[in-house]
Computed example of a mutant assay.
Amino acid sequence: MLTGVRIVVLGGDARQLEVIQKCAELDATVSVVGFDQLEQVIPGIEHRELKDEVFASADVLVLPVVSCDDQGKVSSSFSGEPIVLKKEHMAALPEHCTVFTGMAKPFLRELCEENGLRLVEVLDRDDIALYNSIPTAEGAIAIAIKETDFTIHGSECIVLGIGRTGFTLAKTLQGLGANVRVGIRRNEDVARATIMGWKPFMTTDLAAQTGEVDLLFNTIPTMIITAQILSRMPQKAVIIDLASAPGGCDFRYADKRGIKALLAPGLPGIVAPKTAGGIIADALIRLLLEEQNAREVKS
């Protein structure tokens, strides 16, 4: 149980609703800021305004998956007013407060460091990233089905990168009957890809691989699908870029060539917010319970 733990949730999307609900069910005191247009009634929570006193008694501050920009602006799907996290808000947090987000921009990291606050970036955790790769893969395939007039079964698919997302995506495409090639950047990944039944190639050789591609999925957050690569691709091909904005594709040149190229970051929160929110909530709750148990052992 989280009895006595005060949690402030600042902005966010449908994923935060799962965090709010699960924490409230475990008897935490949950205050929410930036949910004034929320139609859903969640029992046991307090709607508050963005003021220093809201932060002063917080044990945990929960920010959206992409915390805030470098001006402190926090995104919120349920607020009609802009939400800006200011230095004085962070300074009002108690020293023991933990700041919880998906991934932090430099602005938030600096504020946490200046105020001696612990910052937890949940997307850095392997278990969370692995769980998140499932809705990402499903969302990418849903886009592929919508944007093409052929089946994935029997199609020629390339997945660039076989990290957590790339691995899950390649495995899912394979399960649907696609012919899967994977672009790798390390020689040691050759065996891993081969054992899975995929055809590996070095990303430096991408130009030689794209002549017969139907679907190209990118998970590498750097410019990799260049104009040179695009010039060799068939116009019927569809590119789905899953890397963080601005992605890894020359979208201007893709458009010029008539190749459909889509930037699709953050799919878990779009295609499966309940599942994605549950993953984040479970991670937060585990962290809080671990800290609670550690304090009890010390006492």
Rank of each mutant, 00 (worst) to 15 (best):
M1Q: 09
T3M: 08
G4W: 13
V5G: 03
R6D: 12
I7W: 04
I7T: 01
V9D: 06
G11T: 04
G12N: 03
D13W: 01
Q16I: 07
L17G: 02
K22H: 09
C23L: 14
L26H: 11
T29Y: 12
S31Y: 06
G34M: 06
I42S: 06
G44L: 02
G44V: 06
E46S: 14
F55Y: 15
L63T: 07
P64M: 00
C68T: 07
C68G: 01
D69A: 05
K73Y: 12
S75M: 08
I83C: 04
K86R: 14
A91G: 01
A91T: 14
A92W: 13
L93R: 00
L93V: 05
H96V: 05
H96Y: 05
T101W: 11
R109W: 10
R109M: 14
L111T: 11
L111Y: 07
G116P: 10
G116N: 06
R118I: 13
E121L: 08
D124C: 02
D126V: 05
A129W: 04
N132I: 03
I134D: 01
I134G: 00
A142R: 15
A142I: 14
I143A: 06
T151C: 14
S155W: 01
E156A: 02
V159K: 02
L160R: 05
G161S: 00
G163Q: 06
G166S: 12
G166N: 11
G166I: 15
K171N: 13
K171T: 14
T172W: 11
T172V: 12
Q174R: 06
L176I: 10
L176A: 02
L176M: 14
A178K: 02
N179K: 11
R181I: 12
G183W: 04
G183L: 03
G183N: 00
G183M: 04
I184Y: 00
I184Q: 02
R186G: 03
D189V: 07
D189M: 10
V190T: 07
A191G: 00
A193V: 09
M196L: 01
M196C: 03
M196P: 09
G197T: 09
P200M: 10
F201S: 12
T204L: 14
A207L: 08
G211H: 14
L216Q: 09
F217H: 02
T219Q: 07
I220T: 10
I224L: 10
A227H: 08
Q228I: 13
I229H: 08
L230E: 07
R232A: 07
R232C: 06
Q235T: 09
A237I: 09
V238P: 05
I239T: 04
I239L: 02
D241E: 13
L242F: 01
C249G: 10
F251K: 08
Y253H: 12
K256Q: 11
K260S: 12
A264D: 03
P265L: 08
L267H: 06
L267F: 10
G269F: 12
V271S: 05
K274C: 05
K274Q: 13
G278I: 02
G278H: 03
I280C: 11
D282Q: 14
A283H: 13
E290C: 11
E291F: 07
N293M: 15
E296L: 13
